[in-house]
Write a protein that binds this DNA or RNA. Structure first.
Lengths: 130, 130
DNA sequence: TTAATAAACGTTATATTATAACACTATGTT
DNA sequence: AACATAGTGTTATAATATAACGTTTATTAA
């Protein structure tokens, strides 16, 4: 039942670059990478990024203002995101842990707020940097 | 045994404003608020903010690039932060839930990373906006 | 108590991240 | 065809954050 998303030209270009990248990419570094392809302005990047986020194809790492491709097939719409971030090498890894996700999705704040979405960022040192 | 932190002039000014605020404050809105007190440059704000964060007096809401006072007496150093954020009125509420905090602090990623710190942001509609 | 050291300050300049606004183009409905 | 919707390209500018440099204040330890 999953609808195949058709991406526009710019969206595809931006997604390709993010997917190929080893780590999180910044909007302007994406921009510099695509100038040969005729994309010249930040707007074009940010518009594509916004749509890709909406579709769940990529995620924004808020603490770094950077973007990563979604690696977890089950988050077409990103209501529950978790990442581990190495403070030394900047590596970012998406955590997909059903238990964690369930635990947080069902977490309810005392003050009567019903959550629609969460984002969790863990920080530490990755294996290599330890 | 808890050491009383002495704040510098600028740190105190910035902290006072953040503590008095009803919601999260942006760096430049703090700046505009303190120009009468002789603080003129963003650097001065950002320096104070950095120190206040180090001390655990305030937290940065990453998804909003804004700052809130710490309301939970037990996080002198902020290794474990969680917030609920209203998507409509922008209200931010610090969550201090021992269970949640314990659960996340002891969460270990499979890939061998040991976490030092986490930040969790929940989004939804607060009581009023619902 | 003074010399040394560290922390904070003030300032100018600039880098980085993100959006506004407007006109145009492609695509897909009724 | 007429209309709506999503995407594009472009110029300009807003908002967020840091670099670099010299000075001042506070702390510490000889």
């Amino acid at each position: 039942m999953t609808q195949v998303q058709i991406l526009s030209r710019n969206q595809q270009i931006v997604l390709d670059i993010i997917e190929k990248a080893k780590g999180p990419l910044k909007a302007y570094s994406i921009l510099f990478n695509v100038q040969k392809k005729g994309i010249n302005a930040p707007q074009q990047i940010y518009r594509a990024l916004d749509k890709l986020i909406e579709m769940g194809k990529i995620h924004k790492i808020e603490s770094k203002n950077a973007f990563v491709a979604c690696r977890s097939s089950d988050c077409e719409i990103s209501k529950a995101t978790a990442f581990s971030i190495c403070e030394s090498c900047e590596m970012v890894d998406e955590i997909s842990d059903a238990k964690l996700s369930k635990y947080l999705s069902s977490f309810n704040h005392k003050k009567g707020m019903k959550f629609k979405r969460f984002n969790l960022e863990f920080f530490g040192l990755c294996k290599k940097c330890k």
